[in-house]
Design a binder for these strands. Structure first.
Lengths: 239, 239
DNA sequence: CGACACCTTGAAGAGGTTCAAGAAATGTGG
DNA sequence: CCACATTTCTTGAACCTCTTCAAGGTGTCG
């Protein structure tokens, strides 16, 4: 758990187009180099932060893959999202000064630690950063609206199709294939995120495979017919 | 649609303990008085803003009651929240410069219009406001986590119980009864929010009434046994 | 190589939906 | 102020999707 004391500059990070410095340039980008206090490595299966932890910083993912989840006292558990390189975690902690969810690495990962105080200070100096921080939080709110739509009004096939399309789209934006992906999470975690049981997720994968829409070998998924997936998402009652 | 050109001060608003100025005092509170550009009245059933509208401002509810909802091209619809006095709407619009949901008044309402540019400018001057804006957005993210938990892992009775408890708790914080309330929304809107059909909402109300937990007369609800509702929310598999 | 975690598939069951009809409330116009 | 239209709410019955329970298969890691 000893944090790596490596300090690095956002200005020459290859994720800057996706991450915190997005939209900044020149001078402003230089000012941002103080934002990242350090980097931290997280082993697969371990938490970056947990429910109840004191909130101190935002975390930008450099490498690896995370899930965030909330839990109730009575043991219920809900995955609220999956995060990949360039995405920001920890926004939940501001309001109550403590984190209200767990962020768990699904593979060995490395994050940039951006102390919240520095973000506030720098935001006042750099209006573009101020706006960007607001956009990051607004984007998270809009993303969650989408999840609520999914959980509140879609059936199992629609949910899984939407999930796959969202994943490949984000992976594609990071230079990966838009038709092939390796799932970093279990069927149970997918199910928790989608409000389904793991058996239903498995069955729905099998159905998609039978229909020739995807090839599934455990966690390796190849999308054969993206349009079919889109049609499933956009075809509600009428089927 | 002509906005009312009445200008008023946050510093002597009776909602300041719930709303934007929360936590500010003295000088800072005075600076905030420029934040509200004007007030606007919204007739019942009409939108404050709609999906696709240009984003220009946050809105603080002075009086009345709203729902926010997102929709898909194929006509699916999801209520993402119900908002009451002191709560802030419009956060979804920052990221894409346009609103991505509809905010519709469920009764005649009045809102304070706080132009986003002024919020940004003032936030740089008043660190307490900067923090507060972040907290408002963070609170919305945490709230949505709770809704995801509800939609993803609760059964109908648990959802409705959680919904009622949340509503009375918020009403109570505004000086209303913690056992009696008037629903401002239809069964269908409740159902959309909770991921249920309106018939299920109605049936579940009836069941609660049969069990002596609530009295329901149309939109008038009296909670007879708050503890029973809490028990329903916190009793998952084991029943 | 063996233990463990993860995934798949089947069969039965439950919770929620759908379809339908009627009752109650609300709003409108004469 | 009343009659009528419309919206909203309730309840029943059949159906369907997803869950639950169970067993076996596959992959992975020490």
């Amino acid at each position: 758990m000893t944090p790596q004391a490596i300090k690095v500059a956002c200005s020459n990070c290859n994720l800057r187009e996706l991450c915190m410095p997005m939209g900044l340039s020149g001078d402003d980008l230089g000012k941002l180099d103080d934002l990242v206090a350090l980097r931290r490595k997280i082993k697969r299966g371990t938490p970056l932060f947990s429910n109840g932890d004191k909130f101190t910083a935002f975390y930008a993912i450099r490498t690896g893959f995370f899930k965030t989840c909330v839990a109730t006292e009575d043991g219920r558990d809900q995955v609220t999202g999956f995060q990949m390189a360039g995405e920001i975690m920890g926004l939940d902690g501001i309001v109550g000064d403590r984190h209200t969810c767990d962020a768990i690495a699904l593979e060995d990962a490395e994050v940039c630690v951006m102390p919240y105080e520095r973000i506030e200070d720098l935001s006042r100096e750099v209006p573009a950063l101020q706006t960007h921080v607001h956009k990051i939080m607004s984007r998270e709110i809009v993303r969650e609206h989408g999840v609520m739509l999914l959980l509140g009004s879609m059936r199992a096939e629609e949910r899984l199709a939407a999930f796959l399309l969202n994943l490949v789209q984000r992976l594609h934006a990071r230079g990966f294939s838009s038709s092939e992906l390796v799932l970093r999470m279990t069927r149970e975690e997918i199910g928790s995120y989608l409000g389904l049981k793991l058996e239903t997720v498995s069955r729905t994968f099998s159905k998609f495979a039978d229909d020739g829409i995807v090839e599934v070998k455990q966690r390796h998924v190849r999308i054969l017919d993206t349009e079919a997936l889109r049609a499933i998402v956009n075809a509600p009652a009428c089927n």
